[in-house]
Design a protein around this nucleic acid. Structure first.
Length: 462
RNA sequence: GGCGGGUUGGCGGAGAGGUUACGCACCGGAUUGCAAAUCCGUGAAGACCGGUUCGAUUCCGGUACCCGCCUCCA
């Protein structure tokens, strides 16, 4: 059995991964809030942890891994969009308009992540389908004195959980000293966070023991992971920006509600994405979605390759230059594996690289060494979600008949060989290249291949 | 202010206390009418200052710079 080692944020060390139950390895990834198209940064954890999912399936068997990724469909930005639509005269109740908006966004999300070659998780729970479980968990936390209700709100009593801050290496007192916490009259302690909050008529709400309201952000992941994976499971993953407060709060809620369990044993966090060396932000004008890139003609497989070139634990810089290089490499590989049946199993060197804390960059380096063995290359790349059938249409040559051009060029060239005047040959060659055709001339003859930028309208007449 | 991460050859980017990472680019060669593609090959590194060591880019300490989180955020 391959030994997998993963960097556990909880211990800040690389540890040997041993699942609680090898028959059912369980991982949870914090999914998107479905208020709009996923931006490029949203895609990094999806791709990175998709590779982890593939690795776990490889090592423990495809039927022995349970992967959960939630959809957060309770959120003020969603409410705002739905409300705006209602005010603009849209049909239906606010709840229906919210559902409409989240359905639409989930559809986009699936389309975009599919384009990146990410496998669908086994479960994709929606927060709104687990409100009952959240209410039950909140009630239980109140019962156990870890939470309290005040003015329609329910708050988690941070001081009641001794290990609060252990994941992110903070102490409650230090954070209060930083004084960047919201002080509210209904809080016993400024660090306490919301489990439940009241909704007015303009907001979606559910009936609860504390009045009509909606859940706070963190409780959904605690409730859904418990329902689908149990009180103890193997891996919890997400972006490093979620480490605090989101994951810290999840731990506090889950461990207090289910002291019999240990919640997540391994915490994996991916570092942030930058664009051309700068943080992606709307104000810098370098903010874009996955769909924007796809629409620009950058294949999802290329985006995926660029992501995997950098270790997930390091900041990753998205640049046009990287995308161009990735495309060239994939195009070359696609050419090598075209029509080849993959080997029965991936190369041990690739499995070993991935088993070493998801060293995707190292795995790609290994793939480069397999140019002479396309079957092995294809089988190994599949572990990274690359070179798979169904994702390579972009690299296929356009279906055009260039035989007339080839014959013409061949004839002119034959003549030139005798006259030693190659000007006509060079002129035709240039024209073909300008149309995006790769021209290969050898003793054996002339070969014309439509290339990446092929444009039939620019073909010269012959 | 608190917490965390980073700094590797022209560019991207890994591993390993002592032996070539790898890819792209570049340069040389083969091949070609010239190219392209392909093949072969060379060169090039470890922010700075100390320490540990027979030996450090790799471990430890410090400095500088960069980045993230602490507020919705992957």
């Amino acid at each position: 059995m391959t030994e997998i080692r993963l960097h556990n944020t909880k211990t800040r060390r690389k540890e040997v991964f041993e699942p609680l139950d090898p028959q059912n390895v369980r991982m949870y990834l914090c999914g998107p809030t479905v208020y709009d198209r996923a931006h490029l940064g949203n895609a990094r954890p999806v791709v990175v942890f998709d590779v982890l999912y593939r690795l776990l399936r490889q090592v423990y068997g495809a039927d022995h891994v349970t992967y959960v990724r939630n959809f957060t469909d309770v959120d003020d930005k969603i409410n705002a969009t739905a409300l705006a639509r209602k005010e603009a005269g849209a049909e239906g109740t606010l709840e229906e308009l919210i559902r409409e908006r989240t359905e639409e966004t989930i559809g986009w999300y699936h389309a975009d992540m599919d384009a990146l070659g990410a496998l669908r998780p086994n479960y994709e729970p929606r927060a709104t389908d687990y409100i009952g479980a959240m209410i039950a968990m909140i009630a239980d936390l109140i019962e156990k004195d870890h939470a309290y209700a005040k003015d329609g709100h329910v708050l988690f009593r941070v001081r009641s959980y001794q290990n609060y801050g252990a994941l992110s290496g903070r102490s409650v007192d230090d954070m209060i000293a930083g004084a960047r916490v919201e002080v509210a009259p209904f809080k016993e302690d400024p660090m306490d966070f919301v489990l439940w909050k009241p909704s007015d008529d303009e907001l979606p709400g559910w009936d609860s023991p504390w009045g009509r309201g909606r859940p706070g952000w963190h409780i959904e992941c605690s409730a859904m992971s418990y329902e689908l994976l149990g009180a103890s499971f193997d891996i919890h993953a997400g972006g490093i920006d979620l480490q605090f407060p989101h994951h810290e709060n999840e731990i506090a809620q889950s461990c207090c509600a289910h002291p019999e369990g240990g919640f997540a044993r391994f915490w994996l966090h991916n570092e942030m994405l930058q664009v051309e060396g700068k943080k992606m932000s709307k104000s810098l004008g370098n903010f874009f979605t996955v769909r924007d890139l796809l629409d620009q003609g950058i294949p999802g497989e290329v985006i995926r390759f660029v992501f995997l070139q950098t270790h997930y634990g390091k900041p990753m810089d998205w640049t046009a230059e990287k995308a161009a290089q990735a495309e060239a490499t994939l195009r070359k590989w696609r050419g090598l594996v075209a029509g080849i049946e993959p080997a029965p199993s991936p190369a041990p060197s690739v499995v070993a690289a991935l088993a070493d804390d998801l060293n995707t960059a190292g795995a790609i380096a290994e793939l480069h060494q397999m140019a002479g063995d396309p079957a092995l290359l294809k089988a190994s790349a599949a572990l990274l979600g690359l070179l798979e059938d169904g994702m390579g249409e972009w690299a296929e040559a356009p279906q055009v008949d260039l035989s007339a051009h080839a014959v013409a060029l061949s004839n002119i060239r034959a003549k030139a060989m005798e006259t030693k005047d190659f000007s006509a040959v060079d002129a035709l060659k240039s024209a073909l290249m300008a149309a995006g055709v790769e021209v290969r001339m050898s003793k054996a003859g002339v070969e014309l291949l439509p290339g990446a930028g092929f444009d039939a309208s620019k073909l010269p007449d012959v």
